[in-house]
Simulated assay, not measured.
Amino acid sequence: MDGVNFFLTFHLLILCSSTVLVPVKANNNETDLYALISFKSLISGDPLGMLSSWNNTLPHCQWTGVMCGRSHTDRVTALVLNSKELSGHISPSLANLTFLQKLSLSDNKLTGSIPDDLGRLSRLRFINFSINSLEGRIPSTLGNCSNLKVLSLRNNNLGGTIPADLANCKKLTIVNLRKNVLVGAIPPEFGSLQQLTALTLGNNNLTGTIPPELGNLTNLQGLLLHFNTFKDSIPSSFGKLQSLESLYLYDNNISGKIPNSLYNISSIIDLELSTNQIHGTLPSDICKYFPDLQTLYLYENQLSGEIPISLPNCSFLSSIDIQHNSFTGTIPPSIGKLSYLYWLNAANNQFSAKIPNDWDFF
């Protein structure tokens, strides 16, 4: 009897295991399916009929914009519906797509807020909600998306402050929040995002000083903070940004001098500091420090002294705008030899031309 009981018990365990495991797989299928159906239910406009395939005639992994995994072939790993003229709200149920790695809904007509629930997506690497009409705050819960690499929310109506919790996403390489109505300061915690290559916060209502901690972002290639109301001086710590190619600080309330440390960044291509209150002079050998300089925009400041005589040595220069300053002397004749130069604006300064040779730059 003991052998018989063992035999029956063993087979009963196998049967119970089967009845438990199979529904779990089925539920996983249904979880992703229902999450997508919920997303569709909050889309109020689909003039191009892009979601017409989202019906029971096709498996959800074959629906337009939906991609599933290789290992888990029934689990949604990407939802990409860019430029589809979709209107409506973003469903919180997308947070149930627990295998989701890419979520891109840019260039649509979406309104409402970004659901807090998206912070539950631990596998998420890419979020792009740019060029919509989203409102409300950026959810601090996105700081829980530990694998997030790209966060692009530009061209919306997002307000409030930038959540410091985003600094918990240590894998971030791109943060683009340009053209919103964000207020407050840049969280100094962003200085810990060591993998960041682009930080774009232009065209907002940000205030305060620029955190010197941003000088720790040694992989940064683009720092775009234009059209805000930052005050005080450019942090000297920026001299540590040895990979920086584009620095946009124009249209702020920045004062002080250009820090000498900035001339340690030989990788600079675009330097745009216009419409501030920056004073002081430029080094005569500026092109020794910025050999690859292409764009130099310093207009509407309080800069003085002469135009650096070495400026023509920046052989790639294509655009120079230094109008509305207090520069003196003459325009170096050799500027006329810059073969890529298509824009030169030096109006409203204190230049003089006393002899015919002073016009040789033409």
Rank of each mutant, 00 (worst) to 15 (best):
I37L: 15
S38R: 10
F39T: 07
L42Q: 14
P47M: 01
L48P: 00
M50Q: 12
M50E: 15
S53E: 04
W54G: 07
N55I: 09
N55K: 08
N56R: 14
P59E: 10
H60E: 11
C68E: 09
H72T: 12
H72Y: 14
R75C: 00
V76Y: 11
T77W: 02
V80D: 01
N82T: 15
N82G: 09
E85Q: 11
G88K: 06
H89K: 08
L97I: 02
L97A: 00
L97C: 09
F99G: 00
Q101V: 04
L103W: 04
S104C: 04
L105V: 12
L105H: 11
G112N: 03
I114Y: 02
P115H: 06
D116T: 15
D117C: 02
R120Q: 07
L121P: 01
S122F: 05
R123Y: 00
L124D: 10
F126G: 01
N128Y: 08
N128E: 13
S130I: 03
N132T: 06
E135N: 08
I138H: 01
S140K: 13
S140L: 10
L142P: 08
L142K: 08
L148E: 05
L153R: 07
L153Q: 11
R154K: 15
N155E: 13
N156T: 10
G159A: 14
G159F: 13
